[in-house]
Design a protein around this nucleic acid. Structure first.
Length: 803
RNA sequence: GCCGGUGUGAUGGAAUUGGCAGACGUGCCAGACUCAAAAUCUGGUGGUGGCGACACCGUACCGGUUCGAUCCCGGUCACCGGCACCA
């Protein structure tokens, strides 16, 4: 038998699958549909990472199996190609981003093909294609039309290195997601998408989908809903104005001894001329503005602030006058930017009160407020109408009722999630299709004019004043107002990278449609993505954004489902051989193409799924890769011990049925490592048996096919089996033949193993117990003692308890 | 600080309605083939004691429930991830 030439064979089958179109999904087929989605890559110049291989191999195996099980499978791929790395590369080399992108996409496509992924390449999409981003702009305009887009001057996250405004999601941990520089707060005019309006819908939607529990939880935490109340405090010294605060504990209102405003609070500016110590306050505010986000969070323990002389609050429930401070432990971006402080029952307020010598009044019994704030439950005291109530829930409800009656407050909710800062001062993104008209204000570009194309420019550097490169292109900027026809200017900022990826899964359903983002019948046929796999890093960003866009599209009648993804899973990282996260600087990066060249795509695919629990991080191991190579070589070698026979032989029948059951179930549960282990066990059994027949080889090769499709197709063809495995059928198992006729069970005395017994699988309890007691070892252990209890766990063990 | 997760041989990891701990792979040891090496094949491989059949111990640590705990409960420690002065 000839040796297996993986290079030639893998190329051969990749070409044949492509030529015969075996992975093309069929719109409207009567077969059951399965839509498996993987996160499309950003086509970087560096080429694919082993992480991509692992991320795609999971659903790749599931898709190949489902096709064999008679499903109409949509397993598409595309490229999320707008973004900063490409633009920065263009700036460095002087190449146009369009050219860079085309080059990188070609490179990625070649690499993806060489791994043998069964994508439907007739549906490939590119977010930078104008036929694609036309619809990204279209959705933006629909949001604009529906009041979900607004412009506001606000403090935003700004990356001084990338010279770009970032959303909250893009600056997690206070660092720029692209260059990891420290993010600073800067006042700027910003386009926002009103995602907070969808906060409740996003929370509700989570109850209808099948995401891994930690994924759901992370989203819930990110949205960060809290319930409480808004309370209005009259301000003495103002023009009869009220200071509005948000609290989750309105029941502690009688314990308020001061109030705090964020340094940026507008009321300070409004009454600047009446505040006698305005100089001190101005100095404090300056100091706060200098602190980076990082410093503000690191200095948690130290509380700083300045009392506002000239303004004081009036507690609405007891009329007491209380001081107001400005302090940076209160943020302008959450709630109303002002709080009521209850030092007895909030540790931050407690620390501040200690620092500034403010009264601490206990209103909930149960703690020791001479030491620290008490945040637990207990009986209400010193609290007027609430006195005597002894649980949080009732006291809060009672207080809200009281506030609403008196007209000085009401129940309210708050979210940690903020509106989505949506514009970027960069070239390589979708132009925002808005025109600024001196008379009409912000005007939408008419739908007929989409796509609003990116103009061809020579310079991609952002302006030093933080302006987009597009601002320098007069022919782009100057235009007529679509409403009044007068001279107007185009918006020159572009959309963030997350725009194109917020709806791409819809485009796969109908990628070449020029009339709509996708035809209604196709949206209805494919429905929800049945299974979406990707990285945990996208859970509080891409996943939130796209669920928001999808739900909006549902609300305006464009898509038939509320939620885009029925099921979501996530793969674990592949770490470097040293156990650290792979990074260029550490020099521990594995290039998947090196593995393909040295061992073949089948080995790479099998290894990334065999290396450990799919959902957990695992280090790369070169010698384990060789182990997978050995396994596939042994598979090829099965042909040498092949004998005729079209039914499973008695020697292997049970082993094969068991393996079919295990592999079939494990693949669906993403337990790829144990599925492959079961196949390794089976091949060991086969070699121990010394031979296998055609039926057995067919079963083995079919089970292995989703993992290692090239070598299995080659064996199938070499043995003259009919058709292609890619078009073949999955194998079924016979449940009756998954159990051995005789089994080995354990005999315990007092829970300790004393013997092993061979019994018939269907032996009765009495029989087995009698057999156990007859055993020499067991008999020795129980002789002369009283039997307290006897039990038989069918198929597992017997246990005799003696005294 | 809050939320979540994890902890098993030399090593990646198996095993869950509570029932033989360590499947499968790697590494290592021994043997076969070879002038030799690589590759391949065969056997062994949790620890301690014993020539030995065997005994005892063992799933981060302490305790509990149970005939029986890697699994359930209470507490402790370590590591990983997310959020973080969120009122």
């Amino acid at each position: 038998m000839k040796n297996y030439d993986f290079k030639a064979t893998e190329a051969k089958w990749q070409k044949r699958w492509e030529d015969e179109g075996v992975f093309h999904a069929e719109d409207g087929s009567s077969k059951p549909k399965f839509y498996g989605l993987v996160e499309f890559p950003y086509p970087s110049g560096a080429g694919m990472h082993v992480g991509h291989i692992k991320a795609y191999s999971g659903l790749e195996v599931i898709s190949r199996k489902r096709r064999m099980q008679g499903y109409n499978v949509l397993f598409p791929i595309g490229f999320d190609a707008f973004g900063l790395p490409t633009e920065n590369y263009a700036i460095k080399t002087g190449m146009h981003p369009r050219k860079v992108t085309d080059m990188n996409i070609k490179h990625f496509s070649d690499q993806l093909h060489s791994v043998g992924f069964s994508f439907d390449w007739t549906r490939v999409i590119d977010t930078t294609d104008e036929d694609y981003y036309k619809w990204t702009q279209w959705i933006f305009l629909k949001m604009f039309e529906n009041g979900l887009v607004f412009r506001d001057k606000a403090l935003v996250n700004y990356c001084p290195h990338c010279k770009v405004v970032l959303s909250n999601e893009d600056s997690q941990g206070g660092h720029c997601d692209i260059c990891h520089s420290e993010v600073v707060q800067k006042a700027k005019d910003v386009w926002y998408l009103r995602i907070t309006e969808y906060a409740d819908k996003l929370l509700e939607g989570l109850e209808t989908v099948d995401y891994l529990p930690n994924i759901k939880l992370q989203q819930v935490n990110w949205i960060g809903k809290s319930t409480g109340a808004f309370v209005n405090f009259k301000v003495k010294g103002s023009d009869d104005e009220e200071l509005r605060i948000y609290t989750t504990r309105p029941d502690t209102l009688y314990g308020v001894t001061f109030m705090v405003m964020a340094p940026e609070h507008p009321m300070i500016d409004k009454y600047a001329d009446r505040i006698s110590n305005m100089d001190a306050i101005t100095a404090y505010r300056k100091e706060c503005a200098k602190k980076t986000e990082f410093e503000r969070t690191q200095l948690v323990k130290e509380k700083t602030g300045v009392r506002i002389e000239g303004l004081s609050g009036i507690n609405p429930v007891d009329g007491k006058e209380i001081p107001i401070y400005v302090a940076d432990y209160v943020m302008m971006g959450y709630g109303t930017g002002a709080i009521m402080a209850v030092p007895a029952h909030d540790q931050r307020d407690y620390d501040f009160a200690k620092e500034f010598g403010i009264d601490i009044i206990e209103v909930i019994k149960g703690g020791d407020i001479s030491k620290e704030a008490y945040t637990g439950d207990g009986e209400m005291v010193n609290s007027g109408v609430l006195n005597g109530i002894n649980n949080k829930k009732d006291s809060i409800a009672k207080m809200i009722e009281y506030l609403e009656e008196k007209g000085c407050g009401e129940a309210g909710v708050q979210y940690k999630m903020k509106d989505w800062a949506f514009n970027r001062q960069r070239y390589w993104g979708e132009p925002i299709p808005i025109v600024h008209c001196p008379t009409c204000g912000m005007v939408a570009v008419p739908y007929e004019e989409l796509p609003l194309r990116l103009p061809v420019v020579e310079q991609f550097e952002p302006g030093s004043d933080g302006e987009s490169p597009l601002a320098k292109i007069d022919s782009f900027v100057n235009c007529k107002c679509p409403k009044c026809g007068g001279d107007a200017r185009r918006e020159t900022d572009t959309m963030p990278q997350w725009a194109g990826s917020s709806w791409y899964y819809l485009r796969y359903m109908d990628p070449h449609n020029n009339e709509a983002l996708a035809a209604r019948d196709k949206l209805e046929y494919w429905g929800q993505v049945d299974w979406y796999n990707g990285g945990m890093e996208h859970v509080t960003r891409h996943m939130i954004y796209s669920r928001f866009w999808h739900r909006f599209l549902y609300d305006i009648g464009v898509v038939p489902t509320k939620e885009p993804y029925a099921k979501r899973t996530a793969q674990g990282l592949i770490l470097g051989p040293d156990g650290d996260k792979m990074s260029k600087s550490k020099g521990n990066v594995i290039d998947p193409m090196d593995v393909v060249n040295e061992y073949g795509a089948d080995v790479l695919r099998t290894y990334v799924l065999f290396m450990g629990d799919y959902e957990k991080a695992a280090p790369w191991s070169e010698s384990s890769v060789k182990g997978c190579k050995r396994f596939l070589d042994r598979t090829w070698g099965l042909q040498e011990i092949l004998v005729p026979g079209d039914e499973y032989s008695p020697e292997l029948e049970v082993a094969i049925n068991k393996t079919i059951k295990k592999v079939t179930e494990d693949i669906e549960g993403m337990k790829f490592n144990t599925a492959i282990a079961a196949l390794m066990t089976l091949i060991n059994d086969i070699y121990d048996n010394g031979k296998l027949n055609n039926a057995e080889l067919k079963a083995f090769v079919t089970l292995l096919y989703p993992f290692a499709p090239h070598i299995t197709e080659e064996i199938w063809e070499a043995q003259g089996f009919s058709g292609m495995l890619a078009n073949g059928n999955w194998v079924d198992f016979d449940a009756d033949k998954c159990v051995d006729a005789t089994i080995e069970i354990v005999a315990q005395v007092n829970g300790k193993i004393r013997a092993k017994l061979n019994i018939a699988a269907d032996a009765a309890s009495d029989e087995v117990l009698a057999l156990a007691k007859a055993d020499e070892k067991v008999a020795a252990e129980i002789s002369g003692k009283t039997i307290v209890k006897e039990l038989y766990v069918p198929g597992r063990l017997v246990n005799i308890v003696v005294k």
